[in-house]
Design a protein around this nucleic acid. Structure first.
Lengths: 147, 147
DNA sequence: CAAAACTGGTTTCATTTGTAACCATCTAAA
DNA sequence: TTTAGATGGTTACAAATGAAACCAGTTTTG
């Protein structure tokens, strides 16, 4: 191992990114091929499906998206009539977002597929490998949030 | 844990992506703030620095980039005079890419920073956590490549 | 109360990206 | 050979993205 050379193949930031990219690409078929959703749209749907009613800001925090992404995703889901906006009573800048029946239906349809995807992926690993990835990811998350 | 709800916060594809995104963003400062490189440009530089001479196709495989990204990154590094192209003798479609002195200098300057970044990141973890993330990532890589 | 500072959310603009079409060259089959 | 397909690499075009400016409304402060 030469000192002034970086082995990309074993460099953690690169490996993480490539891994996430591959997984994410595979997974995107579930929301993209089926419904033509983008990732921000999927995350918005997913966030609202999970939490019920949220504001755009909350959505951004919950799903780690830039507010412009949220804004655009919300606009598109509204255009599809998958969500509605309700103005806040006390603060007129704020809107409360919630899925419509159609949005909820799409969400409910995709949740089992998403779970199956994850299960299948983890199913290819041994029990120890599963604990390893789970613990490792959690540890890194902790290390980064503690900044 | 309701059956028809997906917890984004504990959904592996999401966590992986967010993690890689955060790490990658942090790391990009090393090549972006310092030299104004994009990620594809950094990977190209890094690939050539590590392997010496490569073709564009090889670069794409080694660093998991789409060929248009490679093409653009190579064009930009060439414009900076950080790499040169040498036509292949026997196959005139192919070009062999290699770093110039200036390119190599930039690479050599960044390698220790990259290594320090990784060391510092892993340094925030315990010994067991480090083995966990390493094993876990390797396991997933294996599971995905085996497809 | 008025001005300044801040916050939720949208829009604009430039950059990055992916898909597909595209050259040029090479290889294999008829 | 000649032609049909592959392959290395670039380019054109549309879509996705991020930074910064922006608007409307809210809070703070003098």
């Amino acid at each position: 191992m030469e000192p002034d050379i970086l082995e990309l193949e074993s460099f953690l930031p690169y490996r993480l990114y490539r891994l996430a990219d591959t997984v994410s690409r595979e997974f995107s078929r579930i929301y993209n091929e089926r419904h033509g959703l983008t990732r921000p749209e999927w995350r918005t749907l997913s966030g609202l499906g999970e939490c019920g009613t949220m504001t755009a800001t909350e959505l951004g925090e919950q799903s780690a998206m830039h507010k412009t992404k949220v804004s655009r995703a919300v606009a598109e889901l509204e255009r599809r009539r998958w969500l509605t906006r309700t103005p806040d009573e006390s603060d007129r800048r704020v809107e409360h977002l919630a899925l419509t029946k159609a949005g909820l239906a799409a969400y409910r349809e995709m949740v089992p597929l998403a779970k199956a995807f994850e299960r299948e992926l983890l199913g290819r690993l041994s029990e120890e490998e599963r604990t390893a990835i789970t613990r490792g990811v959690a540890a890194l998350e902790g290390a980064l949030s503690a900044t």
